[in-house]
């Protein structure tokens, strides 16, 4: 699920459950998730070599 779709679904569900205060918090998580998914340590199926990071476990 991409982040925009995830955020739209989460906000809709929170509103349905009567938790509108969750919306700004979920928007904050979406920004954080974008950063996490962009991080250079993530494996990718189309990348034959692991990222060349010395810090990689």
């Amino acid at each position: 699920m991409d982040i925009d779709a995830w955020l739209a679904a989460a906000v809709a569900d929170a509103e349905r459950r009567g938790l509108p205060d969750l919306k700004p918090l979920l928007e904050g998580i979406a920004r954080s998730t974008r950063a996490l998914r962009d991080a250079d340590w993530n494996d990718r199926a189309d990348r034959p070599e692991p990222p060349p990071s010395a810090a990689r476990p």
């Binding site: 996490l36 998914r37 340590w41 993530n42």
Partner: peptide, 8 residues
């Protein structure tokens, strides 16, 4: 992803 980041 976060668990992998933790190892980094």
């Amino acid at each position: 992803r976060a668990q992998q980041g933790r190892q980094v």
